[in-house]
Structure formats: structure tokens, C-alpha cells
Design a protein around this nucleic acid. Structure first.
Lengths: 256, 256
DNA sequence: GTTGGCTATATTGTAAACAGTCGTGCGGCC
DNA sequence: GGCCGCACGACTGTTTACAATATAGCCAAC
């Protein structure tokens, strides 16, 4: 629209006073449906590590624009859930064997601490929430693999929530996702992610305020998960190949 | 360039075979100079919490385009180092008082575990690295505030590195940054971030393989830092105001 | 003097077109 | 028959311009 009267303002403009951004809507990109969709697809193992995430296809699937998809993928790449390769695109992240072990080690540290804090802080509301979850997990349909995986993850998230530390909760969420990727990459076929009876035991120990017992059970549970994964044979071949080339290079340098 | 001969290919194209993205240059956005610049500016407290990060100004400062800046800011927002508000722009993140406490609690958990692992895994190379850092920290110029802050952070990062867990190392890096923001937000003026003698003590205990002592010293060191910060008075006013409005609203609902 | 509305500007967000890069498959060549 | 070069196509990355929104200052009204 054109202005309807002559401009009288002088262009002299004082530097805008820095106004603090207090009390603003804190809705973040984590609530974005694209991000949420990809995250749940990964945690339910519908997207396997290494899967290509083409921008056009995602845009069509979610009914949005490529720019939006790019933002979501960048965010997921920052959280190491997808891997972006220049000029090739985005792929579901595939952790290395060492990284998978590090993830489990980090979970051992953080989740045992979370259990300990959860026992300390347990109150009525927490008890109710924990009981409600345990009931849902007890009588869910074990044939529905996707629901099982969601519930399994939710138990660990709930424990982190009961610890009352939001930073720890974020970290647990991130580690849960990366655990899904680690398991999907290195699992032996046919084995479940979590032993089915571990969660009720841990929950009961928390409800009984048995701190040492709950911590021990959680550590054992995570170690059990960790022992289910094995390094891939395929990667050894690659390493062998590079070793061969390295050896050849060294010989060439040495022998002329 | 135009093609110089007639096109004979049929447009029929088999779906491209999914090629795994192995062994690709893993250079990530963390190496981006814009990201690095903002991160070091924050960790050295040249950028204060709440500072506006205008896209045009950053683009001019770094000599790059606005899109590049946008990507960097999105990444930093994913890591909770900057806060992005729709249609208002990006600001240096300002943690709440509760979040600041949670950050210190998380550091207590993660860094004590890191010290423990560092003692277990300590080898010749690690000893040398630790000694080298302690020497640098001992004879640095205490008047150079920026160098001091960098060295202080590097000590904690080095301990995490010695623990040999990359996931834990990433988390420590993130927590260090968020600690900088928490301290910058809630510090009492004039006090240093770290007590100057804590690092040599912890380092010596690690070198002596005194695991319990080193863990205890690290926990004490972090608790000491935590006790240096105090909630801001200004925020209480805001809370009081919102409390008043809440009370008024409740009374209106109750009394009609 | 203070308050409310209005307009212009600055700044962010979005869309579309363009350019660059990489995988892929064919054709020729040894 | 196997290998190498070449060109095409699909995709990502970047530039550009445009649209939307919030901010700041001014004028009028009370």
C-alpha cells in the first residue's frame, strides 16, 4: 500500500534500545511435526540407520516445503540423529561400534544417577505416574512391536523425569534415541531390545524406595542391553582393506 | 554446455540403488567459523546472555551471507546456546535459575564419573597431556581474563577427554558452555568462575591415581562453583507480578 | 502530561528460480 | 568381454526477491 500523505519523518533513527526477550512463547523446533515424525519413526525402528532422507520426498510426505524440511534435518543433524553429507543429502545416523559402546556407558552413568535421584524425590504424584506406566506396560499387546518399543523408551524417560532435573532429562531423551540407532545397527536379529521383566523390577524397587537395589537393577538392565549387540563383520572388511592399503603405502615409501 | 550429439537414452531409469554413505568426510557444522566464533565469544563472556544476534550484523561481521548465519544460529539453538524467537530473532541463551541449578547437578554427575574413568584409563600419553595443561595453567597471565576463562574450560574438557568416552565428552562440552551462560547470568560481580587452586589439586590426584580423592575433589570443586551464583532479584519482581495477576484471576473466578 | 492509535522502517521468514555436484548408465575402446 | 570416459539426470546448495511481522517514533486526543 502506498502512503497517502507526504513523509515528514526524518530518517535519523536512534539505535533501537535493546529490549530483553523475556517471557516469550518458548515453543521450539522440537515440537515441529516433521521433527517429531522422524524421531518417532526412528525410535520405532521404521527408519533404519543409513536410510536416505531425501528433501523432496519428505516435503511431499509431510505436505510442506523443502525449506521447512531442511531446517528439521539440520536440527536432527545437530542432535546426531541424522547425518548430513555435503551434496549427497541426509541419512539416518549410523553410529560406529565405539560410539555405540560409549552411548551405553553414558547411559549407565546418567540413568543410575537418575534412578538414585528419583528415589530421593519420589512423592505421591510420582508414585502415581510410575504405577500408571507400569500398568500400561504390563497389559499392552506384546505383538504390537511399535507400541512395545514406544513403551520401553517411555519407562526410561519417566525415570529421568522423576529425577527432577530437566538437563538430565534432555540428555536421557537424546541417549534413548541414539540407543535405538545403536541397537538397530548392531542388534542380533530376533532379540528384543529390553528384557521384558526388567522394568517392573526396577519400578517396584523405586516404589519401595530401595535406592541401592534400584540403582543396581538399572545398571544391570543397561549392561544386559549392551551385551545384546555385537560388532558387524562388514566393518572389519573395510578396516582390513584400509589396513592393506596402508601397508602397501608404507612398503612403497620404505622400499622405494 | 549443450550436448553435441543426439540423445538416445531412454528416460526409463531404475530406482537408484541405495548406496550406503560409508567413509565420508565427517566434517560437521561444529567446525564452521561462525559457530566457533560465537561459541568462543560466549565461553569468554564477550557475549552476554540476552544479547541480540542480528542476522545482518553477523553476516557483515563474518563476511558471509545471511543464510549461512541462519544455519549457524539454528544449530546453536538446537544446542540451547542461543534462543530463537519467531519474528524477533536470535539471542544469547539466558538460562532460568532452575536450569542453572540443573546444569550444575548434571555436571556433578557426569564429571565425577569422567574423573573416575580418567583415573582408570590414565596412560603415558594422558599423563603427559595433563601435565602439559597444568603447566600452562600455572604460568598463564592472570590478568588476561579471556585466556584465563579459556584455560579453565579446557581443564574440564581435558578430563572428559581422558575418560575416553566421546559421548561423555560431547556432553561435557555442552555443559561447559551452558555453565558459562549460567554463571554469566547469575554471578556475583567480581568473583572468578573457578577457584584458582582447585585444578592443580584435582590434576595431581588424577596423576597419583587416587580415584576417590580425585572424585571428591572434583565434586567439591563443582559445588564450590555452584555456590557462587545467586538468583537474580529482578526475576523475583516478575514472579511477584505474575503471582499477583494469578491471584487476581483466581479471585475473579471464585468470587464471580 | 499521559495514553492510544497510526505509520514507516528494520528485520525476520518464505518462496521460487538458478547453479553446482555427484551418482548412473551408455557407448566406445582395448 | 571387461574397462574407461562422457554425458545425462536427480538431487542438494545458494542466490535472489518478496511477504509478513514486530518495533519505534510521532501525532492527536483526553
Amino acid at each position: 500500500m502506498k502512503r497517502t500523505r507526504p513523509l515528514k519523518r526524518k530518517p535519523k533513527r536512534t539505535e533501537p534500545k535493546h529490549r530483553e526477550p523475556e517471557a516469550v512463547d518458548p515453543r521450539s523446533i522440537d515440537d515441529d511435526p516433521v521433527v517429531q515424525g522422524i524421531l518417532t519413526a526412528i525410535s520405532q525402528k521404521r527408519l533404519k540407520p543409513g536410510a536416505k532422507l531425501g528433501e523432496d520426498k519428505l516435503a511431499a510426505a509431510f505436505g510442506t516445503t523443502r525449506i521447512h524440511i531442511r531446517q528439521a534435518l539440520s536440527h536432527l543433524a545437530s542432535r546426531k540423529v541424522v547425518m548430513q553429507i555435503p551434496n549427497r543429502g541426509a541419512f539416518v545416523y549410523r553410529p560406529s561400534w565405539e560410539e555405540a559402546q560409549d552411548i551405553f556407558a553414558a547411559r549407565r552413568i546418567i540413568e543410575t544417577a537418575a534412578v538414585s535421584a528419583a528415589v530421593d524425590r519420589l512423592d505421591k504424584a510420582g508414585k502415581a505416574e510410575l504405577k500408571a506406566h507400569m500398568e500400561r506396560e504390563a497389559r499392552h499387546d506384546r505383538n504390537d512391536r511399535w507400541a512395545s518399543l514406544s513403551l520401553t523408551a517411555e519407562f526410561h524417560i519417566l525415570v529421568a523425569k522423576l529425577a527432577g532435573n530437566r538437563v538430565l532429562l534432555e540428555m536421557s531423551r537424546e541417549l534413548m534415541l541414539r540407543t535405538s540407532l545403536a541397537i538397530a545397527t548392531f542388534e542380533q536379529p530376533g532379540e528384543p531390545d529390553c528384557s521384558p521383566d526388567a522394568h517392573p523390577d526396577i519400578g517396584a524397587l523405586i516404589l519401595a524406595r530401595d535406592k541401592a537395589g534400584a540403582v543396581h537393577a538399572m545398571r544391570h538392565h543397561i549392561e544386559e542391553m549392551e551385551q545384546r549387540i555385537r560388532p558387524k563383520e562388514g566393518e572389519d572388511e573395510v578396516d582390513e582393506l584400509t589396513a592393506i592399503f596402508k601397508e602397501i603405502g608404507a612398503r612403497a615409501r620404505a622400499g622405494g
